[in-house]
């Protein structure tokens, strides 16, 4: 076969366009794009503006927008469908996850958490690699937030409504003063969890593990001494809890471990406190609970009654912490 200019150009173009027909035009003709059950139009101006900002600022180089069957992280309650992207231009799917997938981010966090996180992600997420976006100014951050809260369509609406449902009572409780606030927070934990001690010993290794988790997940909101007096407090309504006051608010004068566990696992929707059930598995949450209790309350309910058969690994450990009397705590 001798390559002549005619063969090269005409043959090259014929093969190329045949391939384009298969790889591009055929999908184009047959994709049959229809809105999915959760799809919503990008009709609000702030959402549309936020979408443009998301595209312009290259958010998609670190955040994908489709959840896969094998995912465990944010949004993995729903696998992406083609109709989720109907009419969005561009529907920016992304190729990298230096940050989490955002296709179901709407309503994961309330607006105040998102605002602080855009100003500087380290305010809420200490080891995040995301840039600080404070330079965009309040208007553009508001628009980005509107877009992020939109992500997930009608599923996001459910979550956003839940955040909005619980924000006013959380603020009201905080405004009622520390004692009333803690009382309200405790009351939101199911009864069976309230009178539950931490089942695991607060050994030194256990506390060190708890400390490491605290530094990676909690420290920038609740602070190095657990008093909640942090930069994050400037952004959040209600502000992060001061753990030290809990010493005077133990359930039945002795329990706090179960409440810690439940609130870390589940978060407190409506407040900036996120759930950590995806980030931390059971043992880590118990370790953090012991760390909070020992470091910031000077007391832990670890291994007190009621308890079942100790786990096989448990060393000989005696809880020598004495529950504070109500008088002493105050």
């Amino acid at each position: 076969m001798k390559m002549t200019p005619a063969l090269l150009v005409i043959g090259g173009l014929m093969v190329f366009w045949a391939s384009v027909t298969v790889a591009v035009f055929l999908p184009h003709a047959t994709l049959n794009d229809q809105p999915s059950d959760i799809w919503k139009p990008m009709s609000e101006p702030d959402v549309a503006a936020g979408h443009k900002l998301y595209v312009r600022n290259g958010c998609s180089y670190c955040h994908s927008q489709y959840v896969r069957v094998l995912d465990w992280d944010v949004g993995s309650e729903r696998i992406a469908e083609k109709g989720d992207y109907y009419g969005y231009e561009p529907a920016i799917l992304g190729t990298e996850r230096t940050g989490p997938d955002l296709s179901q981010e709407g309503g994961e966090h309330p607006d105040d958490w998102q605002l602080a996180h855009f100003v500087n992600p380290r305010i809420t997420r200490p080891v995040s690699l995301m840039p600080a976006w404070e330079f965009l100014g309040p208007t553009e951050i508001r628009q980005l937030n509107a877009y992020v809260q939109f992500l997930g369509g009608k599923d996001a609406d459910v979550r956003v409504a839940r955040q909005q449902r619980w924000k006013p009572p959380a603020i009201a409780a905080w405004l009622a003063g520390p004692a009333k606030n803690v009382e309200w927070l405790h009351a939101q934990v199911p009864k069976v969890w309230q009178a539950m001690p931490n089942p695991y010993p607060a050994t030194e290794p256990d506390l060190l593990r708890g400390q490491k988790i605290y530094q990676q997940e909690c420290i920038n909101c609740h602070g190095p001494v657990g008093d909640g007096q942090t930069v994050a407090a400037n952004y959040m309504q209600p502000p992060p809890l001061n753990f030290t006051i809990l010493r005077g608010h133990l359930v039945e004068g002795k329990y706090i471990g179960g409440i810690f566990y439940y609130q870390i696992m589940n978060g407190i929707t409506g407040t900036a406190m996120p759930y950590f059930k995806r980030d931390l598995e059971s043992e880590k949450i118990w370790d953090v609970s012991n760390y909070l209790a020992v470091r910031f309350l000077g007391y832990t309910d670890a291994t007190i009654e009621p308890r079942g058969i100790p786990a096989s690994y448990e060393p000989e450990w005696k809880n020598t912490f004495v529950a504070p009397t109500t008088q002493e705590a105050k």
């Binding site: 989720d84 992207y85 109907y86 231009e89 561009p90 529907a91």
Partner: peptide, 19 residues
């Protein structure tokens, strides 16, 4: 042919983009 966005609407865009 979409000068303002340079993108197709919907999921189809990803097929154009990765082609």
């Amino acid at each position: 042919w979409h000068p303002s966005t340079g993108a197709m609407p919907g999921l189809l865009d990803s097929i154009y983009l990765w082609f």
